[in-house]
Amino acid sequence: MKIRKKKKSPGTVLFILPTVLLFVLLLLYPVLSSVFYSFTNKHLIKTRLDMVAFENYASVLRDKEYWNALLTSSKWTLICLAGQFLIGFTAALSLERIKHGRTLFRTLLIVPWAFPTIIIALVWKYLLNGVSGFIPNLLLKLNWVSAAPQFLSNKDLVFPTLVFINVWFGFPLIMVNVLSALQTVPKELYEAARIDGAKSGQQFFYITMPQINPVITLLLILRTVWIFNNFDLIYLITGGGPAGLTKTVSIYAYEVGWGLKSLGRSSAVSILSLIFLTIVIVILLQLQKKTNKNE
């Protein structure tokens, strides 16, 4: 603390100046303009610009489809997060456990991360195609199913299928970070626990988890934002269908902003999402603080 006070001098400003400039030039202006647009009838290509007060917000909040989309988005974010973390965690723990081929497995498991969304959508759509897709036909050949499963159109399968694709793509990031976090946990803690007779499950919850808790929170927040805002994966695969089953807020915003070209209304949707996400993140951070205190 003492140092900080003493060292404050004009030179220090130079360190933070680029970030501040970036913030003002690249972020403040578009964010404020979005807030402003959300109170206008701004059109994507027309020149009109009248203040409409809260009309955009009201019309969005009145729209049953928006609420459905918000529900879908929440469900989507929650389940995908759970899936990514579950697979990411178990993969990392398994990698910790094995002795041979660790690098090989780690390298193979990381591959999905390298895929741009366009290719993810393309390749999975092709592989899962209900007529000529490789996977449904393989299942059929193996006699595991009696008819080719329609992964992308059956109303009970489509959501889980999309979750699967999302988890497929997202788990490596979690895995890699958990893996590195695990390495920072002092080995002595485990030794001590083992002597005390703790089972491995107990070890995990009482030693590992608290130690890597901060990393997890950070990842959780970044992933929450990413999954919630992600637009292209779902849009490219199902377009939000069938019958709106996979229509998230991002797709809703897209339809409003580009289909109807109502930039005002799509701004309102985004600002609402921003508020929603902020609340979620604040809750997450509070939870983390609490668990830290409980230690």
Partner: peptide, 21 residues
């Protein structure tokens, strides 16, 4: 029609004709 065609766009549709299905 294949059940999947409920989500088909022009590309998916044309591909079916291309691959003879």
């Amino acid at each position: 029609s294949p059940k999947d065609s409920i989500n088909f766009n022009v590309l998916d549709q044309a591909t079916m004709y291309y691959n003879g299905t």
